[in-house]
Computed example of a mutant assay.
Amino acid sequence: MKVYLERGQLRGPVVTIGAFDGIHLGHRILIETGKAIARARRKRFGIISFDPIPIQFFNPDFPMLLTTRSEKESILDLLGVDFIYYFRFDQKLARMEAKDFLKQIVARINPQVVVTGKDHHFGRDRRGGVYLYKRYFPEVLVIEPIRLGDVVCSSTVVRKELVMGRVNSAWRLLGRPYRFQGIVGPGHGKGRKLGFPTINLALVDDGKILPQDGVYLVRCHIQKKVYPGAMSIGPVRTIKEEHSIEIHLLDFAGDLYGEEVGVEILLRLRDLKQFTTADALSRQIRRDIELAKKLVVSL
């Protein structure tokens, strides 16, 4: 997949426009529809997006991302997208009227067909919409929102589900388990003392959103191998507003210090609890591990 960073002239492709954070099932419909049109007309199909995406630009101190830029590009490449064209999202673009943004797209890319969601909005104060696309592009195909039951499939909804700890719902909306990358670093050794050694992870990209504090069943990708595990996400008592990510890998023994780990979050096992004794904590961890072993067989 070709990547354009506000450079390069394209002529007459089929495109869809947006942040595409998470690349959920709604995004997939836009992509597959655009690809089909492009193939039929012997055109290239691509995504027009932003770097950073708007929610990241407007909330720089809060982790909001479902996919990093590199994750997004990897997924789009696997989906068979021909190119992604990034506009740099800064104060100038944030203040730009929707019609002026579309004029830039016409000048640089001149798409012949735009595939868009019915509820898509863009431009200053999100004033632009489908009606404006139809003024500037030769052909606009509007796709109805995708629903799973009563839930509209959107990046906003996926973020909400993760924040509430409903990772199985996020999985359904994304079409795959939610994933993040971490680097194994030093821990306090409490798990090892209890007989359940853990790896302690620091996020590779601290802009990624994490699910609600709790204990989760996960699948870890390490050195081209996959290991199930039980993950605990919770506050670090000695450091205000920071969280620890600890994972006990099932049926694994070894030193992973410094290794990068890809973590897929599969199911929420329970809320965090306070334990008055080490024995009580040890018994609960043992129950968590036994439950994780039973559940991973069915996934």
Rank of each mutant, 00 (worst) to 15 (best):
D213Q: 10
R88T: 08
I17Y: 03
E139W: 11
A94I: 00
H243W: 12
R283Y: 11
S49V: 13
F101W: 05
I285C: 05
K72C: 08
L162I: 00
K225M: 01
G229E: 10
F50H: 02
V15W: 07
L25S: 09
I265D: 09
V296M: 13
P145W: 00
S70N: 13
I239P: 07
I75S: 01
A170L: 11
H188V: 09
D82Y: 06
D119K: 14
F101G: 09
M1V: 02
I143F: 00
D21N: 15
T198N: 02
N168P: 05
K293A: 10
A98Y: 08
G26T: 13
V226Y: 11
S154Q: 06
I247G: 04
T276L: 11
I37T: 03
S154N: 03
V184I: 04
C153W: 00
V215T: 01
Q223A: 09
R159Q: 02
H121A: 10
E241M: 14
K273Q: 14
I75N: 05
V167W: 09
D150K: 15
E242M: 10
R179W: 02
V163I: 13
Y131W: 12
Q56F: 02
A98P: 03
F58Q: 00
Q112I: 08
V261H: 04
H120E: 13
V236H: 12
V130C: 09
V142A: 04
N168Q: 15
R179L: 06
K293L: 08
I23V: 15
V130K: 07
A36N: 15
L65A: 12
V261P: 00
V296C: 14
H221Y: 15
G195C: 03
R126H: 10
E73M: 10
F87K: 11
K2F: 06
K43Y: 06
T33H: 05
I48S: 03
M64N: 04
T67G: 07
I75P: 03
Q104Y: 06
E97K: 11
I31L: 06
C220S: 14
V226K: 15
K134T: 11
G185Y: 01
L256T: 05
V297E: 12
V204R: 07
R42G: 13
G26Q: 09
R159E: 05
K190Q: 14
R42M: 13
G117Q: 01
A253N: 13
K273V: 08
V263E: 02
Y131A: 14
A36G: 13
F122W: 05
V3M: 01
G258A: 00
C153H: 01
K134S: 07
F137H: 07
C220F: 03
T68V: 12
I233R: 02
S49H: 13
Q212F: 13
V236F: 04
L272M: 11
L210W: 06
A98F: 11
A170E: 03
F57K: 11
R286C: 07
D61F: 09
I289H: 00
R39T: 04
F137L: 03
Q112H: 06
G46F: 06
V184W: 04
P138N: 11
N168R: 15
I105V: 15
R124H: 10
K208N: 04
Y178S: 07
G254P: 09
G26V: 11
